[in-house]
Design a protein around this nucleic acid. Structure first.
Lengths: 228, 228
DNA sequence: CACATTTGTCGTCAACTGACGACTTATGAG
DNA sequence: CTCATAAGTCGTCAGTTGACGACAAATGTG
């Protein structure tokens, strides 16, 4: 089909070039690519093709390689921004502000976490990455999460006048009760495309309530009267 | 590079054939392929290559196409068996056996569910499929899940002498509290490769306890004294 | 033993895909 | 206006990948 044979043809004919769409300063274009790439790979997975990504960006495929040496390098930067980025900053925020009731602190925190972190883009990218490899930078994430989980349990125990579990691992697992439920709420919405009839804010509140109400019972049950 | 030109060459030379490994009856070979394919696609995703799958099976790539017309057809059957299969049968089992305390019923059920359904293979395949498309057969799954969730909440309410929520959607969401936490426990283990220091049986018990203890409080809070 | 049937492999094609050399065009400083 | 430079595209290569025609070897029936 293609005349790619002879190789002698000088081909003096010039094909009409695409009219160089919009010309952009380097930094801005780079930014635009990264933004589109985040959405693109989140939707189609890390195996999504560079040609399709370029089309989504409205540029030629070649131009991608003017900014990133390889596809993997581009994905690494997307990951760093989209996944790692939102985790930084003062996440624990007012979670430790003991002037506020724990239920309100948790509801506020997870309302924010759900909106800012557990987005479609974040979740899908995170899952695609987690599935593809053992890790990409899970240490960083898990370090922050461990901190979060312990804080949650400690703060809840403080308000409830309970002794937090001595076992670190078990304490974290208790935190996962709430964190897992809310993460799964987002997974159902963004990955499984489940119905979303009940507003998530209402369910976050309900899950926080259940967590705080269940904690004393779980602690008592797992920590029999006859001290260890 | 390749001599794909002349097309006249009769090529009378024969290369030594692979010694036809093990010869197997059709049905058995088919079974073997499906088994390996489930693990293979679960590990490497639906974009895993047929050549590598064939190698994993210890057969030639061509042989796959003696049993399945296309890669997609093979994957569809893998999905039907691995994902849909475990959901069939009397799953609700003794969940409705009111002679047993609800906590024991839930602990038994989810202990079994975690071991039989939430396996590495099942979870990874399910996630890869869910991410790849809006659905593959989610209706079937969600129909069963809805049934399960309602049963859980109804049974828990019965034992606690509480009125189940009138809103169907909200009732299901309450069931997701427990179901989501346990699903997420498996996701952490099989997808995120988180540490698994606390035995899952212990955590399932704790989560069931938390759920049952939290339910009355959630119901009361969401259903203000002043009737609707 | 002969041979039809079934099980299995080789080799190849066409489309796909990451990467990149060669080239074109817009922009702005002098 | 001129030209260096940066922004952008075309075309192509080499390796990959789903699919399949042609052929080979094991099996068992008469």
């Amino acid at each position: 089909m293609q005349a790619r044979s002879t190789k002698l043809m000088k081909a003096p004919k010039r094909k009409a070039r695409a009219k160089t769409g919009v010309r952009m300063p380097r930094a801005e274009r780079r930014e635009q690519i990264l933004t589109h790439a985040a959405d693109f790979f989140a939707e189609y997975g890390l195996t999504g093709q560079t040609r399709e990504l370029a089309t989504a960006c409205g540029i030629s495929q070649r131009l991608l390689y003017r900014f990133f040496p390889t596809k993997a390098a581009l994905q690494a930067e997307v990951y760093a921004r989209t996944i790692l980025g939102p985790f930084e900053g003062a996440w624990l925020g007012n979670l430790t502000d003991r002037k506020l009731p724990i239920k309100q602190r948790l509801t506020d925190f997870y309302g924010n976490y759900y909106d800012k972190v557990l987005t479609r883009r974040w979740l899908r990218l995170f899952l695609y990455s987690s599935l593809a490899e053992g890790d990409m930078a899970p240490n960083y994430i898990s370090a922050i999460l461990v901190q979060l989980l312990e804080t949650i349990v400690d703060e809840a125990c403080f308000e409830l006048k309970l002794e937090p579990p001595g076992e670190q691992d078990f304490k974290r697992e208790l935190g996962w009760n709430l964190h897992g439920t809310i993460s799964h709420l987002a997974i159902r919405r963004h990955i499984y495309h489940g119905p979303h009839t009940v507003p998530h804010a209402r369910m976050i509140k309900a899950h926080v309530t259940s967590f705080v109400a269940g904690l004393p019972v779980v602690l008592e049950e797992s920590n029999p009267p006859n001290g260890e």
